[in-house]
Amino acid sequence: MSEYILEISHVSKYFQGLVAINDLSMKVKKGQIYGIIGPNGAGKTTLFNCITGIYRPEIGQILWKGKDIKGSNPYKIAELGILRTFQTIRLFAEMSVAENIMSGRHIKSKQRWYNGVIPTPAYVRDEKANWEKVGELMDFFNLTEYATIPAGDLSYGIQRRIEMARALAAEPELLILDEPAAGLNENETLELTQTIRKIQEMGVTIMMIEHDMEMVMSLSEYITVINFGAKISEGVPSFVQDDPVVIEAYIGSDEEDEDE
């Protein structure tokens, strides 16, 4: 088997004629932090949606440990150990923080079909072990004091932490983060950077879309730059940073913004 845990090869995704992703390829090594950057509307989120099964790309392959997972149902992809957060936070707003994180334990829970109706000693043990894991994650993400509070009532920064805790509760092999620093203040971003490092130290591979250049450059070992659905550059942060094509793409998009 190759050293790459995830191999995306020649993937294209169309929306009614619009090319959202255009012949995109990349390889992610186990244990790596892999950054994806690009101007707004470049197709970064669409790529994550293709990996996690929300969209099925028309062309190409998405190989997870050598097996094509393209078009699999999202729940099956999560069962494989690929968990994600969302750019537009998607929590179970009315449910408590603890219950939100507990959803991450779903695939780890060993309850049998009849445990929805009758409790058994094995069920009781399973339930307890999973709640304890939720407790550990709340400690790790400094969420303990909000355990019973509906997730939707909390601030943006805290909600981002809940989403990461929820994904991590499933003990992922690959954690996919879509703009984890969006909407965070400077302190929160600093904290997040440390948290992501700690998660990597646990042995989790991380893919991350981020507009905060300082953060993405400091964390990533390798970066792919996307514009208009296609790869325009890739390499280590120091290379990508100075690549004229990348600078051009960002300046181009800035000018567009000014025109609006």
Partner: peptide, 17 residues
């Protein structure tokens, strides 16, 4: 409940809707 509150998030947590 997870499915009820957000089907996409539920699926992404490994829940077979």
């Amino acid at each position: 409940f997870y499915i009820h509150k957000d089907e996409i998030a539920a699926q992404s947590m490994g829940i077979n809707v």
